[in-house]
Amino acid sequence: MLRSAPASSSSTSGAARLALQAFLATWRAMAVQQFRTGGLLSFALMSVAIPIFTLAILALVYRGRPDLIGYAVVGQSAFAFINSAIYFVGQFLDFERRRGTLVMLFLAPCPRFSWLGGFTMAGLVQTAAGTPFSLAFGYIVLGVRFDPNYPALALSLALFLVALWGIGLVLSAVGLALRRGNWLAVLVSPFVGLLGGVYYPIERLPDWLRYPARALPFGYGTQALAGSGLHHASVPDLAPDLLPLAGFALVLPLVGIAAFGWIERLVRRRGELDLY
């Protein structure tokens, strides 16, 4: 049956297999590289210590406000995923450029989004592995009690991650053009801290900050995760946050793919791909 399949179908499945292999190989290579160069210490410092100490600061600021401490625990976990999306891919591309291997990466005969997906997955897995430590710190040390609605939590997380992947692609593309993806991420991150609802719910922001915050996906995602993870909110309860988040999850990956393709062509035409 397979032998008699049309050539186009066969080449499509071959391309898909190649993309999957490239995705898995990139993911594996990045995970091994991260572990070998940084090891457990790197994981403990970046994915465990930073969020826990930030939570400790927030717990002191929010002393006597258990509702805000609970929100902050979820918010900082969401912030870890946001940072993973905005830092990892750009940072890996910076590394490739520094080592002089960026051009080879772009010349590899596999889809861009397979190895970009592998980069993203390496960051995502590291972040996901660190999140339980923050949540456990919230539960054990700060006394936060979780009451999750699992279907709503799963849907919120899925939409949030897809939207973040799209944003990550856009920023990676811009970082490629600027030749400094990491610095771009450092530039963007404090804006996310201010407007992303990761320290406080965005409805508590003053008007002049709340309006721009509502134009970004971060606050909707964090609010949906907090509602479903802390207060057993169902999907219908979370509709005001999930609907805009779904819109972002639909649009941002398309924008990201288009932006990456466009900027890549631009950079190659200018001959700047491996300029440092």
Binding site: V61, W183, L194
Partner: peptide, 28 residues
Amino acid sequence: YPTNVLQQALFPVLSYVTWRVTYTVSGR
């Protein structure tokens, strides 16, 4: 690189505003 100049200049200012808002939200 202008990106570097911008990120170095903006980080502390945005951090300041973020923590100030955090204190406002806390009610202190």
